[in-house]
Simulated scan of single mutants.
Amino acid sequence: MTKVLVVEGDPQVSTALARTLGDDGHDVEITDDLRSVLERLDAGQADWDVVVLDAASLKMAGAGRLDSLLVGSSSAMRRMRSALERLAGQDVSILIEGERGSGKELVARALHDRGPRRAKRFVALHCGAIPAALIDSELFGHVKGAFTGATGDRPGVFVEADGGTLFLDEIGDLPLVVQARLLRVLQESEVRPVGGGSERKVDARVIAATDVDLTTAVEQGKFREDLFYRLNVVVLQVPPLRDRLDDLPLLAAHFLKKHGGEKAPSLSPDALEAMSSYAWPGNVRELENAMEHASALHHSDVIGHESLPATITRGSAPPTHSDGSANGHPQPLTEAKRQAGAAFEKRYLVSTMERAKGSVSEAARLAVLDRTNFRRLLQRHGLDAMTFKAQ
C-alpha cells in the first residue's frame, strides 16, 4: 500500500483529494504544516512514498523551491537548499560558481523567489552571449540616436530589474572596460544609458555566476580585483551532476514526465546503469536533453539502453571483471573500486529484498537504514520492489 501525504493549502480541495486517494486504496495522511514537511524531506527523514500538494500549498511552497526539492534529495542538494534558506532574505551580493549546465540560473531564481524582492522582476543576462559592442546597451540601456540602429530608447537590464533581482551569468566574459562601468553602477546605484546625459537611481539585487575561476582571472589581469571583491561577498557552489548521482533517478523521472506527460515512460535497469556510469559533462542540462531524446525514440512503456543518446552509451563504463579489468584491459584503481562497490551494493539490495519478500520497510530494517534512503538506493540501481513480491 502506497503511503501518501497530502499537504493542505485549501481544506476543501485537499480533503477531496485525500478522499479520492483513499478510495483508490492508498494510505493517506493530511497535514497543514508545510514547513515541517519540507524540513523532513530536506533531512531525508520522510517516511511517505509520495507527497501531494494542492494548488494552494504549491503556491505556498514556491514553484522554484518545490521543483528543486522534489528533484534533488542528495546530501549535496540538501546543503544547497540549506544555504538558500539562509541567504534568500539577506540582500547581499552572491557569486554562484558551477559548471555549465549545472543549474546556476535555477539557484539564482530560487534566491529571488524566496526573498523579499519576489514580487518584482527577475531579469537574467548571459554576458557571454552578447557581442562586446552591444553589452553596454544591454546592461545600462541607450537613448534614441546613441548609435546606428538605436531607433528608440532602451532601459537596459538594471532598470528592468529595478526593485527586483538582476542575474549576470558568465560574468567572467565581460570586457575589462565594461567591468569598470559595472563596478561604478554597483557602488553608486546609478546608471547612465549610452548616449544619455543624466543618471537614474536603480535598486536591484545583483547575483553573478561563473564557470571559470575568477581568482585566477584576477591574477591573469582578465578580471578586475575590485569588482571581484564587490561580487564575492558570499559564494555558492552548485555541484556537478557527477557529484550527485543519487539524484539521477529522480531527475530523469522529472524530465521524462516534463517531456512525456502523465503517461511518461520509465527507465529500464540497463538504461539507468549506463546513465549512472556516464560522466555527464553537460550536467543537468545534458540530462534533460537526453531524456527528451529518449522520449522521442522509445517504443514502449520502458526506455531501454538503446534509446539513449550514443554519447551516453559510448561514454558509460563497459562490463568489469572480478579482477578490475574491463574488456581485458586494466582500469584505474579508483574506477575499479567504484564499479565493484556499485555491483556489491546492488547484490546486497537484491538479497535483502528477497529475504524481506519485497517489503521495503522490512528490508530497510534488516539493512539498518531508514525507509526513504533504502528506497532511494533501490531507485538508483533500477530495482522495483514489486518484482520481489512476485517471487
Rank of each mutant, 00 (worst) to 15 (best):
T20Q: 09
D33A: 15
Q45Y: 09
D47C: 12
V71K: 06
S73E: 14
R81P: 04
K104L: 09
A110E: 05
D113W: 00
P116R: 10
A119H: 09
R121Q: 12
F122V: 00
L125P: 06
A132S: 14
D136Y: 07
D136N: 15
F140Y: 05
G141S: 01
G141E: 03
H142Y: 12
A146D: 10
A150F: 10
A150M: 01
L166R: 01
L166C: 02
E170W: 11
S189Y: 04
S189N: 14
V194L: 14
S198E: 15
S198G: 14
A209W: 08
D213G: 12
A217D: 10
F228M: 09
V238P: 02
L241A: 06
P249Y: 04
F255N: 03
L272T: 00
S277N: 13
N283C: 05
L287T: 08
N289T: 06
L297N: 11
H298P: 00
P309W: 02
G328L: 06
H329N: 13
E335N: 11
A336L: 02
K337R: 15
K337A: 15
A340P: 05
L349M: 11
S351Y: 13
E354C: 09
A356M: 06
S359V: 10
D370W: 09
L378G: 06
A385R: 08
